Simulated assay, not measured.
Amino acid sequence: MKIRVGFGFDVHKLVEGRELWLGGIRIDHVMGLLGHSDADVLIHAICDAMLGAANMRDIGYHFPDTSADTLNIDSKILLRKTNGLISAKGYRIGNIDATVCAERPKINPHVPAMKACLADILQTDEDNISIKATTTEKLGFTGREEGISAYATVLIEKG
């Protein structure tokens, strides 16, 4: 069996007038993330990690923010397509370890729903997906609630 590991990172600005989507679910909050798509930082970080592990460049290469095809797209679609890309090379998800960094809203109450959503899209067991939450103790852009970031490490397997 061949295994590979990839790392992904994403950040988006918080703004009024947008819905907040994280891990494929909508979270009630006074602000949402600004982006060409629905700006789901968690899914974007996971996609980058998957693509990196498979040596397939990054999410912007496959789904550019200059394309009308990806304007306002649901990031769950991008994750499904990314899974298809790595599957075409013979890989499947081994496990995902991800962290969302936000002051508000609190992420932990939403983790079970995120895991269920991601596991369904990736056709893997929820036990293969770890989602953690942290803050920056009110430091930096995250601490000032100007944006949310996410980090992901993904192990993929072949054979």
Score class of each variant (00 low, 15 high):
residue 5 V to M: 15
residue 6 G to T: 00
residue 6 G to N: 01
residue 7 F to E: 13
residue 8 G to D: 04
residue 8 G to I: 00
residue 8 G to C: 03
residue 10 D to G: 01
residue 12 H to G: 07
residue 12 H to K: 13
residue 12 H to F: 09
residue 14 L to C: 08
residue 16 E to K: 06
residue 16 E to H: 07
residue 16 E to M: 05
residue 18 R to E: 15
residue 20 L to E: 04
residue 20 L to M: 09
residue 22 L to P: 07
residue 22 L to D: 04
residue 22 L to S: 09
residue 23 G to K: 00
residue 24 G to F: 14
residue 25 I to T: 03
residue 26 R to E: 13
residue 27 I to R: 02
residue 27 I to A: 10
residue 28 D to K: 13
residue 28 D to H: 13
residue 29 H to I: 03
residue 32 G to F: 04
residue 32 G to D: 06
residue 33 L to R: 02
residue 33 L to I: 08
residue 35 G to D: 03
residue 36 H to L: 10
residue 37 S to T: 14
residue 37 S to I: 09
residue 38 D to L: 12
residue 38 D to A: 10
residue 39 A to W: 04
residue 39 A to E: 03
residue 39 A to M: 09
residue 39 A to L: 08
residue 39 A to I: 05
residue 40 D to Q: 01
residue 40 D to M: 11
residue 41 V to L: 06
residue 42 L to Y: 00
residue 45 A to M: 03
residue 46 I to L: 05
residue 46 I to M: 11
residue 47 C to I: 07
residue 47 C to F: 07
residue 48 D to P: 02
residue 49 A to H: 00
residue 51 L to Q: 01
residue 53 A to G: 11
residue 53 A to H: 05
residue 54 A to K: 01
residue 54 A to Y: 02
residue 55 N to H: 12
residue 59 I to T: 12
residue 59 I to W: 07
residue 59 I to N: 05
residue 60 G to C: 08
residue 61 Y to C: 10
residue 61 Y to L: 08
residue 64 P to L: 11
residue 66 T to P: 00
residue 67 S to I: 09
residue 68 A to G: 10
residue 69 D to G: 07
residue 69 D to H: 13
residue 69 D to T: 11
residue 69 D to P: 00
residue 70 T to I: 15
residue 71 L to S: 11
residue 73 I to H: 04
residue 74 D to T: 10
residue 77 I to G: 10
residue 78 L to S: 03
residue 78 L to T: 02
residue 78 L to N: 01
residue 79 L to K: 00
residue 79 L to I: 09
residue 80 R to M: 14
residue 82 T to Q: 05
residue 83 N to H: 13
residue 83 N to F: 14
residue 84 G to F: 10
residue 84 G to H: 08
residue 88 A to E: 14
residue 91 Y to C: 11
residue 91 Y to F: 15
residue 92 R to D: 12
residue 93 I to Y: 09
residue 94 G to V: 08
residue 95 N to V: 10
residue 95 N to R: 11
residue 95 N to C: 14
residue 96 I to W: 02
residue 97 D to A: 11
residue 97 D to S: 11
residue 98 A to V: 04
residue 98 A to C: 10
residue 98 A to Q: 06
residue 98 A to M: 07
residue 98 A to H: 05
residue 99 T to A: 02
residue 100 V to C: 00
residue 100 V to L: 00
residue 101 C to H: 03
residue 102 A to Y: 00
residue 104 R to D: 12
residue 108 N to H: 12
residue 108 N to T: 13
residue 109 P to C: 04
residue 109 P to M: 07
residue 109 P to D: 10
residue 110 H to K: 03
residue 110 H to A: 04
residue 111 V to S: 03
residue 111 V to P: 06
residue 112 P to S: 04
residue 112 P to I: 02
residue 113 A to W: 05
residue 115 K to G: 03
residue 115 K to M: 07
residue 115 K to I: 05
residue 117 C to Y: 10
residue 119 A to Q: 08
residue 121 I to T: 08
residue 122 L to P: 07
residue 123 Q to F: 15
residue 124 T to E: 14
residue 125 D to Q: 12
residue 126 E to S: 11
residue 128 N to Q: 14
residue 128 N to D: 14
residue 128 N to P: 05
residue 129 I to Y: 09
residue 130 S to A: 13
residue 134 T to H: 00
residue 135 T to H: 03
residue 141 F to E: 12
residue 142 T to F: 08
residue 143 G to L: 01
residue 144 R to E: 14
residue 145 E to Q: 11
